[in-house]
């Protein structure tokens, strides 16, 4: 594949120091993620899935190894720099939507821009366009409390797009949704993939992973399987 890698993980390790003993959550991961790809990360609990998610999301730092996001090694950045990276290069989608209760739909979508010092008045149209894109054109001034779970997750998707991130990072994005709503959200993600966005989804749900073109299975802090479907997917169906 000629596609440019936007993420390079090299010998990534994470050790939690619990005082009496140390827990090795990640024991040396190596993989790249190409631009425009759709990757699912799977694994049983305790496999290091969550740890990897936190590091990929720049919420945590690895103990050793390199994590190159875009052109920068973010593995050893300080808190302030990491905050900047999160705000500008990563679009988060969480299991529990995580919208801010006191803000309405448009304001919620604007949040990542706010922390880059961008005024909502200058980007209002952009935020509205994203709300329309996820089908919430008639809910612009609703508060999260006034929306259903599926609608809230759509807002979260729109929010993850507002800063034009390098990667959308979703953590069990359909975990709290019923199956029909789950399909809607997954359809939106498919659509985003179709537009050329890079998606990384952490999940334990096979139905979700099935939509991805590549599934990385973790086991005991190491990559167990790295399956690129492509043609194989067609065969399976």
């Amino acid at each position: 594949m000629a596609k440019h890698s936007i993420i390079q993980i090299k010998d990534l390790k994470k050790v939690y120091d619990l005082g009496a003993f140390k827990v090795q959550a990640l024991k040396g991961l190596n993989f790249d993620i190409e631009e425009g790809s759709y990757t699912a990360i799977m694994g049983p609990s305790g496999s290091g899935k969550s740890t990897l998610l936190n590091i990929l999301g720049c919420l945590d730092r690895p103990s050793s190894g390199a994590y190159i996001l875009g052109d920068d090694d973010v593995a050893h950045m300080d808190d302030k720099e990491l905050s900047g990276v999160r705000g500008s290069r990563i679009g988060f989608i969480f299991q529990s939507y995580n919208l801010i209760q006191q803000l309405n739909v448009v304001e919620n979508i604007h949040v990542p821009l706010f922390y880059q010092g961008k005024d909502i008045s200058d980007h209002y149209d952009h935020c509205v366009k994203l709300a329309e894109k996820v089908g919430l054109a008639d809910r612009l001034d609703h508060r999260p409390m006034q929306l259903s779970g599926g609608q809230q997750q759509r807002v979260a998707v729109a929010r993850s797009l507002v800063n034009e991130p390098l990667m959308l990072l979703a953590d069990e994005p359909t975990g709290n949704l019923d199956s029909s709503t789950e399909q809607e959200i997954l359809d939106i993600l498919d659509e985003l993939h179709g537009e050329g966005r890079t998606l990384v989804i952490v999940t334990h749900d096979d139905a979700v992973a099935e939509r991805a073109e590549r599934v990385i299975h973790l086991k005991d802090g190491l990559v167990d399987q790295d399956i690129r479907k492509g043609a194989a997917k067609a065969v399976a169906k």
């Binding site: 808190d79 905050s83 900047g84 988060f92 801010i100 922390y115």
Partner: peptide, 16 residues
């Protein structure tokens, strides 16, 4: 707390 976590994930620094 959760709101704080969300804001941090969205790029808020400690100072923010």
């Amino acid at each position: 707390t959760q709101e704080i976590g969300v804001r941090r994930a969205m790029g808020a620094t400690q100072r923010d």
